[in-house]
Amino acid sequence: MNRSLRLNLALVACIAVTVLLSLMAGKVWIPLDAWVAGDPRWPIIAELRMPRTVLAILVGGALGVSGAAMQGYLRNPLADPGLFGVSSGAALGAVISLYFGYTASAWLLPAFALTGAGLTMAILALLVGRSGSMIVFTLAGVILSSVAGSMTALAISLAPTPFATSQIVTWLMGALTDRSWDDVWLALPLLALGGTLLALTGRTLDALTLGESAARSMGVDPLRLQLLIVVGVALCVGASVATAGIIGFVGLIVPHLVRPFVGNRPSAVLLPSALAGALLLLLGDCVVRAMPTVSELRLGIAMSMLGGPFFLFLLLRMRRGLA
């Protein structure tokens, strides 16, 4: 059994155990013997914790595989799926729906967020054109991210009511609180499609290890690769933001966690990153739920608290490597 397979099986086993924990843990601890349809606590599991658990797996997996694909594509270990502005665009879409108070239907906010992600992706494609250049791609992403970020800030500062401001700020922090099966059914097809597109890039990302010229001489089509990456990451990140808000750092962290076990080959990092992302978000969600705080700690904040020091650790390690 090779080391990739061993790691993937271990991660699947850990996810299975954490799923049980996720269904039991929360403000109310629900032991296994209460998992029967007639038990009064069963609706908590079936209607609240199950969709939340499934969503944590889906969103964590999508962010993990997106991070691994982005790092492989940009050949930069510090790349993050939020780099090309799709998460900021999705957030802006959601913020606009909150600004105008379009919260009557459960579908409106995610629909606005997905529209924001789609529009950002389309503008990105227009800006990059047929050049296929990675530098143009990155710069265009940074510009879009900054424009969407400034418009989000504008929406917060001009929000019509304090309630709208509070809703926007809270939503931006990212969480899986009160998510339903509707959110799962909305996100599932988009995340599945996005994940599949990114899985197709594996061997091409390997070829890119040798640089753009060598990869092109080996038959890599840079435009096709860019299209797969942009659409794949946009679907994964857009659907994640639409259902869970902005949860940063997962895509940055998990590829680094799996590389010591599977090596640096970009294709070998994709699947374990998806599994590790799912596990990380699931564990994080269990922790924020079980914490004895008056209101639940937002998952996005918890991930940032983990991600910031991890980023610093990466920086120090890179600096040591350069010394």
Binding site: R203, L208, T209, A214, N264
Partner: peptide, 21 residues
């Protein structure tokens, strides 16, 4: 190509196998 870069620290056998792409 001239001055070919290797962007990820892969092992030799993995790198040579990329030639089969």
């Amino acid at each position: 190509p001239q001055g070919a870069d290797v962007h990820w620290d892969v092992d030799v056998a993995t790198l040579v196998a990329l030639g089969r792409y």
